[in-house]
């Protein structure tokens, strides 16, 4: 079971009630940022404290938890958070997307389509999509209240005027339920279409900025764009070097000091599953593939 001396899932019950009330309001107003009294967690702000508080308020002993960091299950942040909940909540953890009931994520949505029973918890550094355009919280709050998103469209227009296209490639703003403009967290714009009418429940926690928001299942999530400049999800123009996938989001890895580089799936579970099924990319057998090959 859980760690002796600590409450189940680390947080005390009063804190969980406060977060749970905020979560229910967040689900009732898709895309609206609910302020909450974010607690200190046993790691620094910026390491996923918001996501962890949401997970702690939601998780139960029967859950199976997966944690990814930029798509990978095996990085420091993902491993630490997974171990934290294995220790404090005694839950089973997994690296398989299909086995997980709760997936806490930093900056990616898994390639495997999510299903109705799953909850995706995003770690969010900056929940306010308008913050870079308007630093005052009172003003951005008023803009959301009035659904006054002209400033955002001007920003996107200026991108087109200067560069000929919208240059945002991550944290690409979305319109949720036709009402609230929302920051999808720094996921690549490649992942934005996966949010639209997803059967899974999507919860967002920003610990330092003290905001919680949510996208319920089957909710419209539209990437902002113009009729004559439609939304284009960005992706490297290459197949995965290890598994040969052409439809997944890729990381570019520098492999030597002579300009050699390799594109590999950012979603490690997706890549491993494909390789286990016999798919081979041009660089199959490379040291990056791990001991398994």
């Amino acid at each position: 079971m859980s760690l002796p001396g600590y409450n189940f899932a680390y947080l005390d019950e009063q804190t969980k009630r406060m977060i749970r009330r905020a979560l229910l309001k967040a689900v009732a107003i898709p895309g609206y940022q609910v302020p909450f009294a974010s607690r200190e967690m046993p790691l620094a702000y910026g390491w996923g404290t918001g996501g962890m508080q949401v997970t702690a308020a939601v998780i139960g002993p029967d859950d199976v938890l997966k944690v990814i960091d930029q798509g990978a299950d095996d990085t420091t942040n993902a491993v630490s958070i997974r171990r934290f909940f294995a220790l404090t909540a005694g839950v089973r953890t997994t690296e398989r997307t299909v086995e997980a009931t709760i997936i806490q994520t930093r900056h990616r949505i898994p390639e495997t389509p999510l299903t109705a029973g799953q909850i995706l918890v995003y770690q969010v550094p900056q929940p306010e999509p308008l913050r870079k355009l308007e630093p005052r919280e009172t003003e951005t709050r008023r803009m959301h209240a009035l659904a006054e998103y002209g400033l955002m469209h001007v920003k996107l227009y200026e991108d087109i005027a200067r560069h000929g296209r919208i240059t945002l490639s991550y944290d690409y703003p979305v319109l949720v339920n036709g009402r609230h403009v929302m920051a999808p967290s720094p996921i690549p714009s490649f992942d934005n279409p996966k949010m639209h009418r997803s059967p899974a429940l999507q919860l967002f926690g920003a610990g330092r900025e003290k905001r919680i928001y949510a996208v319920p299942p089957y909710t419209s999530v539209e990437s902002l764009a113009f009729e004559d400049h439609p939304f284009h999800p960005w992706k490297a123009n290459a197949p995965c070097g290890l598994c040969g996938a052409t439809d997944s989001y890729l990381d570019e890895v520098v492999v030597d000091d002579r300009g050699g580089r390799l594109f590999v799936c950012s979603d490690t579970d997706h890549c491993t599953t494909r390789r286990a099924a016999g798919h081979r990319g041009a660089a199959a057998g490379h040291a990056l593939a791990g001991a398994g090959e």
Binding site: F8, A9, K16, R17, R20, V58, I59, G60, P61
Partner: peptide, 9 residues
């Protein structure tokens, strides 16, 4: 803790 979690979920 466990009962409240089950109800909340």
């Amino acid at each position: 803790p466990l009962a409240a979690q089950a109800v909340f979920r």
